[in-house]
Design a protein around this nucleic acid. Structure first.
Length: 364
DNA sequence: AACTGATGCAACCGCTTTTCT
DNA sequence: TAGAAAAGCGGTTGCATCAGT
């Protein structure tokens, strides 16, 4: 079993950090930056391993940390994000400026899981817990076991995950909730709120790349209660922010053209971003989703045909977003920033994505 | 007042991923 | 391109504190 090289050094201190150590580390990093973490303890005069210093800095000393209790909005957001991302704490933390993954993980394990159970919601699947299970004795132990199993399988899926940006966008780029009990509706609700909001900042939390820090209480304008409202609409949307210039969305619950909304990318005239799509095209796109949905429930079939499926769906995406420079989700043969340019890459991407969606929306 | 169990938090451990050489 | 080192991540553990008895 491989161990981190610094861990072999028996002289190194472990355990809680003293104020003096904190001060040394803080002074050092403030003055010189951390550079290579393994050299930090030596340079700062600390008997710690670099890993420990890094952790201490990230979780405690960083000046941008927001200490104190979590607000209700933050808690709700964590629950929502967990419904989509699972135990990917660092990605959840990325959406909560000033909060660390460790902090969020602790909050989840100590508090939020409990709250969800009290609301009759399984913290792993984010589904409602059936009445029969609620009343049974030894519920806690059973849940813990189920949780471990579910999380383990979820982690298995997570292992096949790739580039971070997709994870960010999985929630926002394409989702379906035919009958969402609770969390499954989250991404759509977020987008719907965002797209109806005049404040373009309202979607900033989608963006990993924007780098903009925001205050959860002021930059998160939609109320979280409505986020949780279940919906039966099937939606397809494309996120917007610095990475995503377009934010079209539609709801298949209505075929009226006025429900097809486009939001202008910043600084572009309407004719530059106008998306032309007929009802027939929308329906066709919707049927693609049905196919996608089918694969969610038939992963073997999906794997067998993912490539052809992706090849098929790709033109639709193009159609939706003509000449979009969006670098992540939307393949385009003219775009150098495009992450996936070859069908096989697309297939790989969708296969992984479907696995993730299956994990996230397994209750569909 | 002393004990005990529950809880929350900080830190560690082991593994994976990314970067460097 | 391969191997090593560093960074990052998530699960787990240990300890301090608090509430209940």
């Amino acid at each position: 079993m491989r161990r981190h090289s610094c861990c072999y050094n028996q002289k190194l201190r472990k355990g809680l950090w003293s104020p003096e150590e904190d001060e040394k580390l803080l002074m050092h990093i403030t003055k010189y930056g951390h550079g290579c973490w393994s050299s930090v303890p030596k340079q700062a005069g600390l008997q710690r391993c670099g890993k420990s210093c890094r952790l201490r800095w990230i979780n405690y000393l960083r000046p941008d940390l927001k200490r104190g209790t979590f607000s209700q909005e933050e808690e709700n957001l964590i629950i929502e994000l967990h419904g989509v991302l699972g135990n990917r704490w660092s990605q959840i933390a990325a959406q909560l400026p000033g909060r660390t993954d460790n902090e969020i993980k602790n909050l989840w394990n100590s508090c939020l899981k409990k709250k969800l159970r009290q609301r009759g919601i399984d913290p792993v699947t984010h589904k409602k817990i059936p009445e029969a299970e609620k009343g049974s004795g030894g519920e806690d132990n059973d849940n813990r076991n189920q949780e471990k199993t579910a999380e383990a399988s979820s982690n298995e899926l997570n292992k096949s995950d790739d580039a971070t940006p997709y994870v960010q966008n999985r929630a926002s780029s394409m989702s379906c909730h035919h009958h969402s009990d609770f969390m499954g509706g989250f991404p759509i609700q977020m987008i719907n709120h965002a797209s109806s909001s005049s404040d373009s900042n309202s979607v900033n939390w989608y963006s990993h790349s924007s780098g903009r820090s925001f205050d959860i209480n002021t930059d998160f304008p939609f109320n979280t209660t409505s986020i949780l409202t279940p919906t039966t609409a099937t939606n397809l949307f494309l996120p917007t922010d610095s990475s995503f210039l377009y934010k079209p969305s539609f709801s298949s619950s209505s075929n009226s053209p006025e429900n097809i909304s486009n939001t202008a990318p910043y600084g572009l005239k309407e004719e530059q971003y106008q998306i032309h799509m007929s009802i027939e095209e929308l329906e066709e796109l919707s049927s693609k989703w049905d196919e996608y949905y089918y694969y969610l429930h038939n992963p073997v079939s999906m794997l067998a045909s993912s490539e052809s499926f992706c090849n098929e769906i790709k033109p639709d995406i193009h159609h939706l977003v003509p000449d979009t420079p969006g670098p992540i989700m939307l393949p385009h043969h003219n775009n150098n920033n495009t992450k996936f340019q070859e069908p096989s890459q697309m297939a790989s991407f969708f296969s992984k994505d479907i696995q993730k969606l299956t994990a996230a929306f397994g209750h569909i």
